[in-house]
């Protein structure tokens, strides 16, 4: 489903990613771990199409198509979703309207009829209950004045409404109290589906107590320095990241395209 090969990325003339390889098949959940500043968000943002990042080498295929030449909205319409580490506040635009505008353009792309106001509200209410969000937040401006936990729930809400094929969750678990973490983890588990893949970007293994990944990767020095099964997360938790460097590059977990 997702095939990343030798990806090099620069920000402000500084090379952050130096040859990332990663392959994800439908139904899989991959955790991407690594210390702060190792480039996890850079990888996530590049996949979503943020214009500030320059790809200097390598390729990314999504369902066999060149993802890097699609504008961000085309990626979203094809089924790529990024839950932002720092969700953006948009003053003056109601949360519900924002979501409806996005959903309807995605539906139009997929040849589905637009949802009218009533149908959308029904869907929204149901999914808001699912992430235990106060219904009043539908009419508040997007993320404005939301607490950290509310913002993360809002990202999960968006994922639940947009129903992506590939969900990239960038630190959606960090900074959450135990209730919010449970809600977020529950959201992720419920969305797990044989046709859907997930990339959990995190620097804590805490969320992995609730969500069991199929693979764990360590991003270090701009590359996937180590890959393994779910046990690797526990090892990282116990030993930190320093020892990984000494292991040297290790073959990526899954090979071949989807």
């Amino acid at each position: 489903m997702l095939e990343i090969r030798n990806l090099h990325v620069r920000v402000d003339r500084q090379e952050i990613l130096k040859g990332v390889d990663l392959s994800v098949k439908p139904g899989e959940v991959h955790a991407v771990m690594g210390p702060n500043g190792s480039g996890k968000s850079t990888l996530a943002q590049v996949l979503a199409g943020h214009p500030a990042y320059t790809v200097t080498e390598g390729k990314v295929l999504f369902e066999g198509r060149n993802l890097l030449e699609m504008p961000p909205e085309a990626r979203a319409r094809e089924g790529v979703f990024l839950a932002f580490q720092y969700p953006v506040e948009i003053p003056g635009v109601a949360n519900a309207y924002f979501l409806k505008a996005g959903l309807n353009e995605i539906r139009a792309h997929r040849g589905l009829p637009e949802l009218d106001a009533i149908e959308f509200l029904q869907l929204l209410r149901e999914r808001m209950r699912f992430v235990e969000m106060d219904q009043a937040m539908a009419n508040r401006p997007v993320n404005e004045g939301f607490s950290g936990g509310e913002k993360k729930r809002n990202e999960i809400l968006q994922m639940a409404i947009l129903e992506p094929r590939l969900a990239i969750l960038d630190e959606t678990d960090s900074g959450l109290d135990i209730d919010a973490l449970r809600v977020v983890a529950n959201g992720i588990n419920t969305m797990r589906h044989p046709e859907r893949a997930m990339l959990l970007v995190t620097h804590y293994q805490r969320v992995l107590n609730y969500v069991t990944p199929d693979y764990v990767h360590v991003l270090l020095g701009g590359r996937i320095a180590l890959s393994g099964g779910k046990g690797l997360a526990l090892e990282l938790e116990a030993k930190g990241y320093d020892w990984v460097k000494d292991e040297g590059p290790v073959p990526v977990a899954a090979e071949g395209g989807s």
Partner: peptide
């Protein structure tokens, strides 16, 4: 970017 990443055209 945030809006476009949710599927909205420019």
């Amino acid at each position: 970017f945030y809006a476009r990443s949710r599927g909205m055209g420019e």
